[in-house]
């Protein structure tokens, strides 16, 4: 490998990121006093700039930012998963049931799907929502009748709800 020239060394010094050791320059700097001075001068400039740092922010922007932070909502996949499960249950029930839904001795498909929802997702913040859905499902299983309007209202309220900011 040929020795580094002064031009190459000066270019390398100028490109050297602040705080990085110039290992490839070491032998050249040992032999060239001018480049060694240029290197020291560069280090001094780096130190001066770092010491000055970023200027202080004159305005307090936080109040305006804080007022625009929207409360976190339940993310759609988490909300839609139990809804999709319930919808699938209803679809299966309609597919296999007679035109009039008859009381059954075991849990209805809807109940099975809805009651399984919390365990499947394991999300703490969904526990309450899942319990409400399960309540509807148990009611449907117990009576043999399903109240779609009540269920729809519950689902809509769940999807529109969200946790508040701290």
């Amino acid at each position: 490998m040929s020795a580094m020239t002064c031009d190459e060394a000066r270019k390398r010094i100028l490109e050297l990121p602040a705080g990085e050791a110039p290992e490839d320059l070491a032998s050249h700097l040992e032999q060239c006093a001018d480049c060694a001075r240029a290197y020291e001068s560069q280090r001094a400039l780096d130190g001066l700039l770092r010491a000055v740092g970023t200027p202080p922010v004159e305005a307090d922007l936080w109040p305006a930012i804080r007022s625009q932070l929207r409360p976190r909502r339940l993310t759609w996949p988490w909300v839609l998963a139990p809804v999709a499960g319930v919808a699938a249950g209803i679809g299966l029930a309609l597919l296999f049931a007679s035109p009039t839904v008859a009381p059954t001795s075991g849990p209805a498909p809807l109940a099975a799907v809805a009651m399984a929802a919390p365990a499947e997702h394991g999300a703490d913040d969904l526990d309450e929502d899942a319990q409400i859905i399960a309540w509807h499902a148990r009611a449907a299983a117990g009576t043999g009748l399903f109240d779609p309007s009540s269920m729809a209202i519950t689902l809509i309220s769940l999807t529109q709800g969200g946790s508040e900011l701290n």
Binding site: K11, L14, E15, P17, E40, S41, Q42, A44, L45, G47, L48, L49
Partner: peptide
């Protein structure tokens, strides 16, 4: 980034040379 840094440093060396010598 490195080439912009090199050009900027060369300019700053000229402008702030005296100040850096004092510091050194």
């Amino acid at each position: 980034v490195l080439s912009r840094l090199a050009r900027a440093r060369a300019t700053l060396q000229r402008k702030l040379g005296g100040m850096m010598n004092e510091g050194m």
